[in-house]
Design a binder for these strands. Structure first.
Lengths: 156, 156
DNA sequence: TATATTTACATAACCAGTTATGTAAATATG
DNA sequence: CATATTTACATAACTGGTTATGTAAATATA
């Protein structure tokens, strides 16, 4: 399949991201941590702001709002997040880190820092791929896969 | 989150691959095609060999064997693949393209070719990313995310 | 040749997202 | 000020993979 670089691109991205994801799950299990992959994205946001809403989290970590609800509910269930209703707008959940979360954060930070080192290593300290991913994301935002492909089909 | 390039890398790969995946689904639906994303990987293999087994497909398209079973079962249900049992080894399914598949293939090839053009466009004709993905895959194969991260944790 | 191991495929349970849709509260509009 | 629209969150159904485990057939070994 090596000759079909473009046609295998999407599946390849999924395979790599899956491999890192399952690796992280496995790591947390080995370390007896109650966290899951990608929760660190939420924790990172709380470094800059101590109250966040579902919508804010979704916008910032670029995961859909129902996706964020699932993450937040799991984090609540493990006592890492607590919520109170906004007094001025009862639709809004004001989310905060719990005492447990704050207490565990230094330990978790160490694990994420080690994970960051791994990614650096895997990328061989070459940051070019970030620019390339930027370009891809921007190009998709401009016109997505379906629209572009329909145009190519039309133009033969 | 822009400052956390490494920590957001995995989620980013998933997001891009998801976006391309859902785009392809949407495209096929619009074109009233009964195929699904990644089936083209299987079709591509049949260009070189007219009989394949589940295991062979899994090895070549680098999807797990249960994953391939799901794809193959769906392709059978849509009458794109047929199977007969190997007479010498009754565990083995010998898979072949159906008449319908062969008949539709020229049309499908056009769609995949257009999709290939889109990926080229999104990558801005820059093939560097393929080499970078190679490196990442090789590095993971050498030592995976979990093992590497445990070492980094240990070494402080 | 009986038993242990390996192989090929099948099934179950899970995973972390997605889209589509619903509900209730807040805001904008006629 | 009543109604329409928008917003924030919730829920359902689905996606395309994954890992773990099971089963039956084939092969290797004692």
């Amino acid at each position: 399949m090596e000759q079909y670089q473009y046609l295998t691109f999407t599946a390849r991205l999924k395979r790599i991201s899956d491999s890192l994801l399952y690796g992280a799950k496995d790591l947390y299990k080995t370390l007896n941590l109650e966290i899951e992959p990608n929760w660190h994205l939420v924790f990172l946001l709380f470094k800059e702001k101590n109250t966040l809403t579902i919508t804010e989290i979704a916008e910032n970590i670029k995961i859909s709002q129902p996706g964020v609800i699932k993450i937040v509910n799991k984090m609540k269930a493990k006592d890492y997040l607590k919520a109170e209703t906004d007094k001025r707008d009862h639709r809004i959940q004001l989310l905060k880190l719990t005492t447990k979360a704050k207490k565990e954060l230094p330990k978790l930070d160490k694990v994420w820092f080690a994970g960051e080192k791994t990614i650096k290593e895997l990328l061989d300290n070459n940051t070019d791929i970030f620019d390339q991913l930027d370009k891809i994301e921007n190009a998709i935002a401009e016109s997505n896969y379906k629209d572009r492909t329909l145009i190519h089909l039309k133009n033969g």
